[in-house]
Design a protein around this nucleic acid. Sequence first.
DNA 1: GCGTAAGCGGAGGATGTCTTCCGCTTTTGC
DNA 2: GCAAAAGCGGAAGACATCCTCCGCTTACGC
Lengths: 190, 190
Amino acid sequence: MASVIPAPSTRPLRADAAANRARVLAAAAEVFHEKGLDAGMEDVARRAGVGVGTIYRRFPSRADLLETLLGDLLDAYALEAELALAMPDGTGLAHFMRTVGEVQATPRGCAQRLWSSPAAEVRRAEVHARMTELLDAAKRHGTCRTDVTLGDLVGILLALRGVREAPALRVELDWRRHLELCLVGLRPTT
Amino acid sequence: MASVIPAPSTRPLRADAAANRARVLAAAAEVFHEKGLDAGMEDVARRAGVGVGTIYRRFPSRADLLETLLGDLLDAYALEAELALAMPDGTGLAHFMRTVGEVQATPRGCAQRLWSSPAAEVRRAEVHARMTELLDAAKRHGTCRTDVTLGDLVGILLALRGVREAPALRVELDWRRHLELCLVGLRPTT
DNA sequence: GCGTAAGCGGAGGATGTCTTCCGCTTTTGC
DNA sequence: GCAAAAGCGGAAGACATCCTCCGCTTACGC
């Protein structure tokens, strides 16, 4: 009975395969960011410099690929929330909101509209818990109205998506201006 | 030469055809509102109680159908802006923003994300012109900061779409709350 | 009432996208 | 170095959606 431990569920990827996997993820983020979430797998494959078969070997379906991108994004948010919690005087909340906006604006942010994915439920709850902490801290320091809810904050982040994904109109649109407008709206009315 | 006038470019539709056209438009608004703008023509036809052929006879392509919905929506906005301009003391702006929010929330609002359609350029410019008037009136009456731009207002309306179309999360989202937050942010800081 | 023009439905062709499959290539462990 | 395992590309299958077409039905003008 040399070893009862079953073989590791996922043996490490071959070096070239691991590199390709990373290139696919990066290419997918770029393509989905530029062309929208319904860009074709062929586009992603071409950008990554691989064949479509290579994508499907690593990600059983298109949905799995998107799910992975979402996971990475939520990880980034959780990390930023952690950093913001260390900031003094309740300034973390505004900092976090601005940072999330910036992340959303990068290719990584392409997964934004997948927040509802059940697979990401746990990580999403974690981010929300930390956002609540940030909110409470801001309230304690008087930099935020006391009637503001977590839903309000999530609403703002989703709103930014609406501004950013807007069709090209004749007016100048700027998600950063919209965020600042919202942040003003959160402040206590003196 | 009884008449040199060419036949009217579009002779009136037969009664049943006109009724079907209206039913198609209503059904399309509902279906696109519920399932998103990429719902199938088959869905629309079923909801309208007609065959797909009937839709294509009246609207040469899917895009034409959407364009027509957008036209109706922009007409509604233009009308609301007109009404708001008649309100006193610069209160028209907030009223207009709230009204547009309500319209967006109905099936008609499904066309929201088509604002960039070139065919609707003229009506869009008209709506924007009236929004600028509303904005100026609000600034004159001191109910709005003087640095607010038309782009800020359009941004808010697009932001509402982001909130409304949000995936079902575990937090309570409310586009009306987001709008009020923005309206607070527009007010002069006393 | 009746003839004609307009309208109707829905099967099926055209097109595009996701996914599978398999012969060939590259990496890895010895 | 070599054999076996893992990986690779891209053509072709499966499937969905848009749009066309045509025989049958309905409304309209006289």
